[in-house]
């Protein structure tokens, strides 16, 4: 399986690059857990969109995307299992700073981010086929393109009318497919 990873991220209009609350992982295709080890190990990548309205949501988004890319989030149950440790890391990060009254108040609300993770697995016995599996929380979206056309999107087939509630449940999708490129 040949994989090329390219990440593109842009802050909102009027914001500084340092105010971009989006995150992705891994940094490069070679940094994915298992990639290149045997040729059949799954490739993991994730994006997370930190909510503009919450504080330190960029850090929370980086923790979520990183955990998925390291293989710590196998499925929805796995996400729930890893959350307490990620929350501890987030609190350790933000609690280390002296904060003004308004930041103290806002931190009580926590931070919010979407998560969209995809796992690509090659089938060693079947030529030219593989499986992708995706997990999504919130309104980030995966698009599968082939020859310039949209094959499938997940979890949204059309733009959501409004942002999903902060307590969205994770959604999973598994699909077996012939790869476009090998």
């Amino acid at each position: 399986m040949r994989i090329r990873l390219e990440a593109v991220s842009l802050q909102k209009a009027g914001n500084q690059p340092s105010e971009n609350e989006d995150a992705y992982a891994p940094e490069s295709a070679g940094a994915s857990r298992g990639a290149g080890a045997s040729g059949v190990a799954p490739f993991l990548a994730a994006v997370a969109d930190g909510a503009t309205e919450s504080l330190f949501s960029g850090h929370w988004a980086r923790l979520l995307a990183g955990a998925f890319a390291r293989g710590e989030v196998p499925d929805a149950q796995g996400l729930l299992a890893v959350l307490p440790e990620l929350q501890r890391q987030w609190h350790a990060h933000v609690g280390a700073k002296p904060l003004p009254w308004y930041a103290e108040e806002k931190l009580r609300e926590g931070a919010f981010a979407t998560l969209l993770g995809v796992r690509l697995s090659e089938q060693p016995t079947v030529d030219c086929s593989g499986t992708w599996e995706a997990l999504a929380v919130g309104d980030s979206c995966l698009f599968q393109l082939r020859r310039g056309g949209l094959l499938r999107s997940f979890p949204w087939s059309s733009p959501p009318r409004s942002a999903p509630p902060r307590s969205s449940s994770p959604r999973m999708c598994t699909r077996t497919d012939a790869w476009a490129h090998r």
Binding site: S18, E19, E53, L55, F56, G58, Y102, A103, E105
Partner: peptide, 11 residues
């Protein structure tokens, strides 16, 4: 207070 908190960001 609520409006200040709503506009609070890391910076």
């Amino acid at each position: 207070q609520n409006l200040v908190v709503r506009c609070a960001r890391e910076e």
